[in-house]
Design a binder for these strands. Structure first.
Lengths: 249, 249
DNA sequence: AAAAAATATCAAATATTTTCAAAAAGAGCT
DNA sequence: AGCTCTTTTTGAAAATATTTGATATTTTTT
């Protein structure tokens, strides 16, 4: 196994485990402890890993990204299924808005090669958007700590002057009675405007969001063209004409 | 098989695989390892591939981030010295602008705990700013591929309505004759406005920037309050009242 | 103080770079 | 086309450089 692959393996282990021990790495890679140590030192110099005394290492993630990356892992399959379907709706040349959530982030990789322009207020999407060389407009404004979302009068003004072909928006909570809600009032405000300025509106939700209410309501269930989710049972009372149930594999 | 086709084959392999081994390529192309190595070197020079020890090569993933991180490493000590000094100029409660460069990025960690608001058009600064919980306003606009800098009418409009206590701006090139220049016309435009809207203007430069000109000039040497750099020799002809030479340790 | 872990050192094993001559491919000419 | 001359590409061998495992030494933990 070449060094690069070995180091990747270590990072992979740390993605699922939080801490790995030298023995463990050694066993999986079949090299001497000396080499494992050297690998870890290399990764540490790259800022990817922190070496702990006691023969272990843990992943270094920036505080802010942590919560985002952790959310990316939650219900990954559902989010993947929903966003994969959502991406098929995007046609060449379209001008679309992506909300700042993790489900929306999953969409990005599927847009690769499509000639679209993405507008978003989710600063964490930037890496992924650049990676796939997608034309991007990031809204400007105050950056919300922890979630790196851009809000404020300036962001509002910008979206107010845009007309989207489609928007894809997630929510923290969704109920038939109260509609879609989120935990931040500024995010709610932006969502509200985006929905108004979009020809077609798509709501995305993994099953955990359904049935709960968050603080700030920004839309009614009926404000969308399609509501994309995976769990049929949970949306039984919803308007079935607007529902799209996708299978997670 | 002609060289061109061979190299394409390597890229194809990397499309699906992430890593290819020398043996693998050699087997498929039926040439000597020496030639495979040369092919890889060519591809590397084209920026299409990364050569790894072990004889494998991997597709370069996020060109953008990579180049930023690599630039962060260049002249690290000088940048650190310059930005460390720059940060001492920032007082509690101030409203400052940071340019999108790597030198400016180094400033951020030194702002930890200071009650300042940072405005920037460098999207790559976000992680660092969130990490140290610094109040941040990110300009909105088109995201320039590769460098993740925000530009365009919207960004311009935003900075035009702001009044900064201080701004810290780097450049790609600096000469006494032509002043400060950068490689992107939009970045130059933003810089120009920021300089106008700042009570105090600070230019930052590691020694490699001095003596070279880039495409778009955005300021004269005299447009600043202080010009902070490390290399005394290179700035001998500059107005000494404005110069601050810091030691790298 | 004993045990465990981390660091340092060194020689062997691998990989990479350099060098050089042969082969292949082009370019110009008759 | 056939022939020379030049340039480029290639493979093999030698020279360097890097990676690795083993062992000894120092540091840290218990």
């Amino acid at each position: 196994m070449i060094p690069y692959k070995r180091r990747n393996l270590i990072l992979d282990l740390l993605h699922s485990k939080d801490i790995v021990y030298l023995d463990e790495i050694q066993e999986k890679t079949d090299v001497s402890v000396a080499t494992v140590r050297r690998d870890l030192k290399t990764l540490e110099e790259e800022g990817q890993v922190e070496i702990l005394t006691g023969g272990a290492a843990k992943l270094v993630v920036s505080v802010a990204e942590k919560s985002f990356e952790e959310k990316m892992k939650l219900n990954k399959e559902e989010k993947e299924a929903v966003s994969s379907y959502a991406s098929t709706l995007v046609k060449d040349g379209q001008f679309i808005f992506l909300g700042p959530g993790t489900t929306e982030n999953h969409i990005i990789k599927h847009l690769k090669g499509k000639n679209v322009t993405v507008v978003t207020n989710g600063a964490f999407h930037i890496d992924e958007l650049l990676k796939y060389k997608i034309k991007t407009i990031l809204l400007g404004g105050s950056v919300l700590t922890n979630i790196a979302v851009l809000v404020g009068p300036s962001a509002i003004k910008q979206v107010s002057n845009m007309n989207f072909d489609k928007c894809f928006i997630g929510a923290s909570g969704i109920t038939l009675d109260n509609g879609l809600s989120t935990s931040n009032i500024d995010v709610a405000e932006i969502n509200r405007i985006v929905i108004e300025k979009s020809k077609e509106v798509y709501f995305l939700a993994d099953s955990t969001k359904i049935g709960a209410d968050s603080r700030y309501v920004f839309a009614d269930i009926n404000d969308c063209n399609k509501f994309i989710t995976t769990d049929k049972a949970k949306v039984d009372n919803f308007d079935s004409k607007k529902l799209i149930i996708v299978e997670k594999d």
